[in-house]
Design a protein around this nucleic acid. Sequence first.
DNA 1: TTGTAAGCGTTATCAA
DNA 2: TTGATAACGCTTACAA
Lengths: 361, 361
Amino acid sequence: MPSASIKPSPARPAPRATIADVAREAGVSKATVSRFLNHRETLLTPDIASRVEVAIAALAYSPSPMAQALKRGRSRLIGLVVADVTNPFSVAVLRGAEKACQQAGYLLMLFNLGNDSRRESEAIQALAAYQVEGFILNTLGRDAGAAADAARHGKPVVLVDRRHHDMQADFVSLDNAGAVRLGGRHLVQAGYLELMFLSEPIKNVSSRMEREAAFRSFIAESRDGMPELHGSTFESMEDNGEELDQALRALRERASGRLPAVISSNAVVTLRVVASLARLGWRLGTDLGLVGFDDTEWSPFIGPGLTTIAQPTDELGRLAAGCLMERLKGLDLPPRQILLSGRLLARGSTVAAAPSMILPT
Amino acid sequence: MPSASIKPSPARPAPRATIADVAREAGVSKATVSRFLNHRETLLTPDIASRVEVAIAALAYSPSPMAQALKRGRSRLIGLVVADVTNPFSVAVLRGAEKACQQAGYLLMLFNLGNDSRRESEAIQALAAYQVEGFILNTLGRDAGAAADAARHGKPVVLVDRRHHDMQADFVSLDNAGAVRLGGRHLVQAGYLELMFLSEPIKNVSSRMEREAAFRSFIAESRDGMPELHGSTFESMEDNGEELDQALRALRERASGRLPAVISSNAVVTLRVVASLARLGWRLGTDLGLVGFDDTEWSPFIGPGLTTIAQPTDELGRLAAGCLMERLKGLDLPPRQILLSGRLLARGSTVAAAPSMILPT
DNA sequence: TTGTAAGCGTTATCAA
DNA sequence: TTGATAACGCTTACAA
């Protein structure tokens, strides 16, 4: 029996069909195929057009974005740099941006800094090398040059949540001042008068600075009609629960009778506060009020439920991508700022008295 | 005064330097520059070499990955398709994979399906078009053809967490059977004897099937020496809390005196159980034991703390990327399976009696 | 309306 | 050892 007569198809990785293959199959030139694809306005003879169409279908041809990028300098790629994919906020924004990009026929290239801001330049370099057409940056911008670099290459940049100080670019973010006021007013109305704003180390991160400043203003303004209101701030480091415990104890002492509460600047910090309360044996709401930035799917289930300030993350992502698309279409305006409002979700962590303690009318 | 004599540098987006620029600058040919870059083994005259080196530095030249991809068909890109970026498990795996890829000089292109499994083909197509060299897939694989497609193009594929039924590819995952046993034994030891396995709709998703099957086996085996042990399973849909409430009530009735507990198949389901308990007014641990797959940063703070089975997510991602790299280097072995063990983190949700109820010795 | 040919930035194959 | 030169797959003047 002749052993090698019929070789079972050796699973040769059939290479992708090229435009030349299509041209040959349809009996036309490459240019014609290209025109069929890119310049539908050019009238092609119906006969030719249909031959090309058939050939394309037959070979399951789709143009190579790489070759296209090389030729026309446009890659249909958007670079997204995120300080930390672990942050639910970033992921949510990513989702929004991704949707918008895909709808516009762009693909996202993700670069995660893993909270190592020194790698920002590297990320932008790498992405730029792949000819991404624009950047969405949710990073510290510590390395001032990095993003500016991108802009210098003539690529549009949109900043999300975090402003880069010396950078002229579109900026999409939560209305931090408004959001802080939302939280502050809610606490005051709920009867908390000894307030503390708790943030990760400010370190020039714009959103942290804005929130802290807004908190100070809120206190200053509110004290006019309410002198018993008092505010303080604290920067919480990772790995230092004791310091936080201490700060909370001090807060409660300062309160001396009045109700103490904390506004935490993001979900990570919120969790630290919760951990601290567990150590201290305090009850949420009763012993300490808490409203935290960023609503998460677990917020309702911590203790009596965490009161949060939800950010319109999906919308932020969409808008960031939208801005970029507009710039790519040539929009030439000075940098814009788009600020979206937060939404307060009131839950048990800002209810000072247990329901049973409220007197019936 | 001559107005236009000195035009302030018009911020012309200086185009990236090309290999031709470098060649000209160094007074050599493009080929020489290319060799300098790619074939360090070829001896170049020290003089030439240094001239090239200087020119490269002067122009801040770096090769265009696009052009390289076009020429050599390799893009230094890995395609990562995720069923749902919102899932913390997926993100954690992503991080691990990303690290490994970057170390190996690859960049990740992320495609998120947003839980729409019909888009899997689309994703793989798009990524393949960008000449990604391999795929890491954490998807349903419902669309059987999709991944197979990729393989047919000759690109290596690694599956994470979810097997695609008719797909021959490397597979990296938690040791589901072992993990279920871990959880089951823990519950039994803690005194829970009426067990229920709670999963999202199984729908042929391999990890769900495996975990459920493992649960059944565990019960079957354990009943030999412990006939009072009892097990059941339930598939929980989104948006149907009532059904879940009902199932839990039924579970507790069945228990009739023995302690009831639930093993939930992932963090989402765990949260549903927690929500249900809140509605029912039950206490975690005491009224219902709970151990959930996937440890999260919030797990310790739900009620008395959630007992969880932690997956080595980072390691999973790293290994997936590692497998891919090996395949890219030409490793030609039959598909491998890599199973990693889970770790049980015991917390309050599997402590049946409140500490105060434990009698002093 | 269609085809020819040049070129995008690389790498690889030849000669020199 | 180095330098022309021809691809890679595509788009786009320009010519027919």
